[in-house]
Write a protein that binds this DNA or RNA. Sequence first.
DNA 1: CTGTTAGCGCGTTCAA
DNA 2: TTGAACGCGCTAACAG
Lengths: 336, 336
Amino acid sequence: MSIRLKDIAAALGISISTVNAALQNRSDISKATRARVLKKARDLGYRPNWVARSLVTQKTQIIGVVVPDLSRSFFSQVIKGIDMVASAKGYHLLLCNTDEDPAREDEEVSTLIGKQVDGLIIGSAHPAGECAVWRRLEQSGVPIVLVDRWFPKTHFVGGDDEQIGFLATEHLIQQGYRRIAHIRGPNLSTAIGRLNGYKKALRKHKMPIKRGYVREAGYHTEAGGYGATVDLLRFSSPPDAIFAASDPIAVGALDATQKYGLSLPDDIGLIGVGNMQYGQYLTVPLSTVDQQRIEIGSKAASLLIDLITGKAKGNTRPVLIEPKLIVRTSSSRRSQ
Amino acid sequence: MSIRLKDIAAALGISISTVNAALQNRSDISKATRARVLKKARDLGYRPNWVARSLVTQKTQIIGVVVPDLSRSFFSQVIKGIDMVASAKGYHLLLCNTDEDPAREDEEVSTLIGKQVDGLIIGSAHPAGECAVWRRLEQSGVPIVLVDRWFPKTHFVGGDDEQIGFLATEHLIQQGYRRIAHIRGPNLSTAIGRLNGYKKALRKHKMPIKRGYVREAGYHTEAGGYGATVDLLRFSSPPDAIFAASDPIAVGALDATQKYGLSLPDDIGLIGVGNMQYGQYLTVPLSTVDQQRIEIGSKAASLLIDLITGKAKGNTRPVLIEPKLIVRTSSSRRSQ
DNA sequence: CTGTTAGCGCGTTCAA
DNA sequence: TTGAACGCGCTAACAG
């Protein structure tokens, strides 16, 4: 069906390896034959067969990317960042969606290694602390960079979650809020880090950390944020501000506070994480912390490619991307 | 580095092809040896090398996916739909981003074919009418399904854009709006189809189609929507409703109308396309037309896999997905 | 039932 | 400067 080296060799009456040498621009081939080969190759529409090439070179120029949910804006932007540097360096992306299922993740990683990817970038669905998986994978020899969710002794690129939590909480304190609640995410390093940052800021200002002021919700459902907020508002001493671990949670919180007749930012302050698109066009423009998603992706790809090409060594210092605070109406108290 | 058939054959003192037959669950192998092979394979951590397998089977179980922008929510959801059916049928996705550049698209498609993908799904960056490209690709023998943006004589899955335009405009008319403007997208089949639907609805109700009431903006920038709306509002007889070709355009329009002190839906009506996330939480909840993105992706993948496996024939009837009208505040006029 | 043989398309020796 | 020969890891035909 498609043109092979053999075909263009036959058409020219020369050998396959000469054609090959010519196409590789090797110096030990005469200008004349190179020109003939190049022309014939173009005429015939020759396209190198990468499967065959990969079999001998042991390189596919393919990076496996495994994420919990392709369609979530966080991951789709991280992937964009990955692709920006990967495609520039001649790599393609082989994609897998795990639906937040650790078992499926392990399976997919295994088949990707079977597909001979040169390296892997993984946003893991494993709960924080489940570290044995990564030890097993080391033997395969395929370099792996984790993104977003951190595990010990791995190559990692992601947001500085403790800093995210600290920035957000500190900001609320500066705005004069005093009873600050936190709606946290599930048991992943990201949620844990943000929670720690929240506590750190409260401690710094000698404010009490009330147990009841920390509630949990899924990361990407506004319904969870809504429910948690309703719970918080029913307290005998309800909070005067909420640090939501994600923008979707914050949107749910926003909805709940408004249904309760509270007005932001005066009755209650609110800040999320993620800098979602159109956050400034919500009923109340939403303050948030930007994780720098594209940068997370591009840094991860750079690191991985350095690992693949041997430019980076095996030491596993985590790369933490500095978050940016984005202040909008929802947390900008007019009266201190 | 990794285990081959040869290694497990050697470890068991049998031949490679016996091992192979056992692993393939072929019926002409004794239960005993199959069991021994399976056990040894598991112990050694054998993973089939897909590159080698693909070279002989001429199948990679990989679908190439080429889109203008990975991070746009439209495409990331279409990709999710593709992945849902592809992964269920044992295919992986090889991703390419073209940044809306037709030249880059052609290049990427060519290298993907070189990578021996079993089929391609393309959201093309070529302007409507540039059809020669697809003719050239037919020779490669690799099945191709286009998504979102239609071209003649190709396999296609996408929204029914004329129906989208018709639904939106008809809805505005039903709500009592009489001077309906349209902010259209760029020169792609989607924008053209929506424009045609808009005109069709106006004609049906014997309403005039004013040239000045149709303005163009980029699909995915609210800035374009903002500018176009400002232009419309400055008219001597400004419109009393706007059909925006996309939700981002509609968000820009919403912003502009509010800066002009107009209140929706009474002073002016507004509807977009895309059913963006959190559209109901905008300052005015946004009416929109849902294109059914996931379904576009999954239908495209089904069709492509049928083409690959020979279950579908070469006839190229376009598959149009029925849009759904979603009515929210921005177009719900209280007083007729 | 099992082993032998021959390729898939390409890159890389080494001779000529 | 060019060509012949071998092997990457696997599948598939055929022989025993």
